[in-house]
C-alpha cells in the first residue's frame, strides 16, 4: 500500500481523493396531506435528475420533515436541487415544481433556503397557470401564490433561495461480486443521507460511472469508466480493478458545503467497511476539475 492508504478491518482504503466543484442549489420543501403524497411529489420532482450532464440538474430527497418542521404543519419532504448556475436552478425548479409538485394531489411548495444568496422565481411565474384567477397572500412578510386547481388550490412560495454548494464528491466501493459490493454501497448510502446532502442516483448508487470523453469519438461527452469495469479488466491495459474484485459501485454526493460533503464521505466510508467492502476508493480528474479535494486519508477517524 502507498503512504496514504490504510485498512479499516478487512477493507483497503486507497490513497486517493474525491474531487468536487461548486454548484448552485436550492432547497424546496414539499408538503402534502400525508407522508405518502409528499413522498410521491418529491420522488416525481427528483426523477431524471441524476447528472447535470444528461439531466441539466441533480436532485434528490434530502430528508423527510415532521409536521412540526413545515410551514403549514403538514408532513413534508426537503428536496435539494443542484445546477451549474442560478439561472439553471431557476429553470429546473420551475419546470419540476410546475410538472411534478403542482400536479400532485394535496401538495404545497415552500422555500427551504430563505437566506440564500440569490432568489429565483417559482410561484411568481407559476401563477400564470391560474389564468388570472390566481391570488397572493403575504404571510409574515413572505408572499405566497394561491393557484386555483381542480382539487382546490395549489399554494406555492413566490421564490426560493439559491446558494452555492459542493457537487461531485464521491466514494467508490469494490466487492468480490455484485451482491457483496451492493451490500457495502447500500450500507454507505444509508449512512450518508442526512441534512445538507443529496445522493442523486437511483437509491443513491450509480453502477455506470463515467469518464470524460471517449477513446474513439470526439463528439461523445462521457463514456463508461472502462478502467473500473470488471468485465474489461483482461482487455484494457489501464484497468484499476484489482484481482478478486467482481463489481464496483459509486456514490456521488452533492452537498450544501464542503464540510457536509466531507462528513458524509466519512460516514459512507466507515459504513462500507463495516459492511465488508473489499476496497474503497474515490474518483478524481487529477485535481484539475474542481477546487474541492477530499483525500480518503483524512477520513480515517470514524464519524
Amino acid at each position: 500500500m502507498s503512504d496514504g492508504a490504510y485498512r479499516l478491518g478487512d477493507t483497503e482504503v486507497t490513497d486517493e481523493f474525491a474531487e468536487a466543484f461548486p454548484m448552485r442549489y436550492a432547497r424546496v420543501v414539499i408538503t402534502a396531506a400525508t407522508d405518502a403524497w409528499a413522498l410521491e411529489a418529491a420522488r416525481s420532482m427528483t426523477g431524471f435528475a441524476t447528472s447535470v450532464i444528461g439531466c441539466k440538474c441533480e436532485a434528490a430527497i434530502e430528508r423527510p420533515l415532521d409536521a412540526g418542521e413545515t410551514p403549514d404543519g403538514r408532513p413534508g419532504i426537503a428536496v435539494l436541487l443542484f445546477a451549474m448556475d442560478s439561472e439553471g436552478v431557476g429553470e429546473r425548479i420551475l419546470e419540476r415544481v410546475g410538472q411534478s409538485v403542482m400536479t400532485c394531489p394535496t401538495s404545497a411548495c415552500f422555500d427551504g433556503l430563505p437566506d440564500g444568496e440569490k432568489r429565483v422565481a417559482v410561484g411568481s411565474a407559476l401563477r400564470y397557470f391560474g389564468d388570472g384567477f390566481q391570488a397572493s397572500k403575504v404571510v409574515a412578510g413572505e408572499r405566497f401564490w394561491r393557484i386555483p386547481v381542480m382539487e382546490g388550490e395549489f399554494l406555492c412560495c413566490e421564490s426560493v433561495g439559491v446558494d452555492t454548494g459542493v457537487a461531485g464528491g464521491n466514494l467508490v466501493f469494490l466487492g468480490a461480486d455484485d451482491a457483496h459490493a451492493l451490500v457495502a454501497a447500500q450500507a454507505a448510502a444509508d449512512a450518508m443521507r442526512g441534512p445538507g446532502i443529496a445522493l442523486p442516483f437511483p437509491g443513491g448508487i450509480v453502477r455506470s460511472g463515467s469518464k470524460v470523453g471517449s477513446l474513439r469519438s470526439s463528439s461523445i461527452p462521457a463514456t463508461t469508466n472502462h478502467r473500473m469495469a470488471p468485465t474489461l479488466r483482461a482487455q484494457v491495459d489501464d484497468s484499476f480493478v484489482p484481482d478478486g474484485v467482481g463489481a464496483v459501485f459509486e456514490i456521488v454526493i452533492d452537498g450544501v458545503s464542503e464540510a457536509a460533503v466531507r462528513e458524509c464521505m466519512r460516514r459512507g466510508l466507515h459504513a462500507a467497511a463495516d459492511a465488508g467492502a473489499l476496497q474503497v476508493t474515490a474518483a478524481n480528474f487529477g485535481g484539475d476539475l474542481g477546487p474541492f479535494h477530499f483525500p480518503l486519508s483524512e477520513l480515517r477517524d470514524p464519524p
Binding site: 403549514d72 404543519g73 397572500k137 404571510v139 394561491r146 382546490g152 388550490e153 395549489f154 399554494l155
Partner: peptide, 18 residues
C-alpha cells in the same frame, strides 16, 4: 363556491398563533 380546506388560510392561522 365550495367547501374546502384553504391551504393559504392554514398558513395565515398558524401565523396568528405565532
Amino acid at each position: 363556491a365550495v367547501r374546502y380546506r384553504p391551504p393559504a388560510l392554514a398558513l395565515q392561522l398558524r401565523r396568528l398563533r405565532e
